[in-house]
Computed example of a mutant assay.
Amino acid sequence: MAIEKGDFIKIQYTGKFDDDMVFDTTDEQLAKENGIYNPRGVYGGDVVVVGSGQTIKGLDEDFEGKEPGYTGTLTVPPEKAFGAHNPALVETLSVTKLKDQFKDKNPYPGMPVEVNGKRGVISQIIGRRVRVDFNHALAGKEVQYDYTIEEKVEDNTEKVKGLVALYTGLEDIETEITDDLIRIVTPIELSFNQRWLVTKVNIATELIDRLGIPNLEFVEKHPYVPPEMGAEDIVEVPAEENSEAETTEEEESEE
């Protein structure tokens, strides 16, 4: 059956630009070979919802009408990839404003920086000023995707786990699903992630809408950590004192 908007599918893909420069892939070995391996990334395939914007627009649109098992190559123009390069997103800043990020290094073209929560790259250095480009690194570029639709995901548990992995990088997360509730157990570490507040809303909205289950709970898991007792924590009671204590307790008992 042909893939439709709203379907959950599992895909394998490799994204390239300038013919053979790999910038993204679900193949762990290929990521390592091209110097883009992320130890926190999820490899082996992504589960996405067709038409939800979880991939670039051109690729997302290309899924529709394909059959599970499809393999092909797609060339995507900038406007349906990472957008046209926007000159308004290039700013000239004083080196002094960024000095804390340079540490022991001198600024150089291509150096990544962050300004007011925005990530950019130094494109040019002019005396004591730098031009910082806040466009996506692939803005204005035509990209190519080699991709395979491995399967259409039908099992609700796999849909939940796949979507959580896509957003968080957490694989095989604990889930519980009934007719009226989706319960997702999350590790305590996620509570320290500032992006999690937005991410959890996206996950909840997508799953409630697509699975038709009216309620979703995120349960924060706090594992038991036994107290550690070192030798310095153990207080030895001398035999005499111990005897006296026992005698006193017996006398009080008799009274």
Results as ranks from 00 to 15, higher is better:
44 G>S: 09
139 A>W: 02
156 N>T: 13
103 K>H: 12
143 V>Q: 00
157 T>N: 11
60 D>H: 12
32 K>Y: 10
127 G>V: 01
75 T>I: 02
135 N>I: 08
72 G>Y: 04
103 K>D: 12
227 P>K: 13
8 F>K: 00
242 N>H: 09
78 P>M: 06
9 I>Q: 03
56 I>T: 06
195 R>M: 13
197 L>V: 14
166 L>I: 04
236 E>L: 10
169 G>C: 02
44 G>H: 06
141 K>Y: 01
135 N>C: 04
164 V>A: 10
225 V>S: 14
156 N>G: 02
159 K>M: 15
104 D>Q: 07
129 R>A: 11
116 N>E: 12
222 H>I: 10
170 L>V: 15
26 T>F: 07
234 I>V: 15
192 F>E: 15
102 F>A: 08
238 P>R: 03
88 A>P: 01
199 T>C: 12
124 Q>Y: 12
2 A>C: 08
81 A>T: 00
95 V>H: 10
251 E>R: 14
63 F>M: 02
103 K>C: 05
110 G>K: 11
244 E>L: 03
250 E>R: 05
24 D>Y: 00
253 S>D: 13
169 G>N: 05
163 L>Q: 06
129 R>M: 13
226 P>T: 14
241 E>T: 13
159 K>C: 04
119 R>Q: 15
83 G>Y: 00
33 E>P: 00
180 D>S: 14
175 T>N: 14
194 Q>D: 14
64 E>I: 05
15 G>F: 00
243 S>W: 10
95 V>R: 15
186 T>E: 10
78 P>G: 00
124 Q>H: 12
234 I>K: 15
207 L>D: 02
178 T>P: 08
188 I>C: 10
238 P>A: 04
109 P>F: 12
64 E>Y: 08
220 E>Y: 12
2 A>G: 05
134 F>S: 12
29 Q>F: 07
26 T>N: 09
92 T>P: 01
90 V>Q: 08
185 V>C: 03
134 F>A: 08
18 D>L: 05
237 V>R: 08
103 K>P: 04
55 T>I: 03
27 D>T: 04
235 V>H: 15
99 K>D: 14
84 A>C: 03
98 L>G: 03
146 D>Y: 11
22 V>E: 03
143 V>H: 01
168 T>N: 05
46 D>I: 07
9 I>A: 07
178 T>N: 07
206 E>W: 03
123 S>K: 08
205 T>H: 08
117 G>T: 11
29 Q>G: 06
183 R>L: 14
23 F>H: 08
60 D>I: 11
239 A>L: 13
82 F>D: 07
1 M>G: 05
8 F>G: 07
147 Y>T: 02
161 K>N: 05
119 R>L: 13
149 I>D: 05
166 L>K: 14
129 R>T: 03
74 L>Q: 00
35 G>K: 01
240 E>N: 06
183 R>P: 11
21 M>I: 06
255 E>C: 09
43 Y>M: 04
58 G>K: 01
201 V>S: 09
19 D>E: 09
6 G>T: 04
92 T>V: 15
37 Y>S: 10
185 V>Y: 13
9 I>F: 04
27 D>I: 01
60 D>W: 10
139 A>P: 00
168 T>V: 03
245 A>M: 09
179 D>Q: 04
71 T>E: 15
222 H>W: 04
36 I>N: 04
171 E>N: 07
105 K>H: 08
158 E>I: 05
148 T>M: 02
111 M>Q: 01
119 R>E: 15
128 R>Y: 14
186 T>A: 07
199 T>N: 13
64 E>L: 13
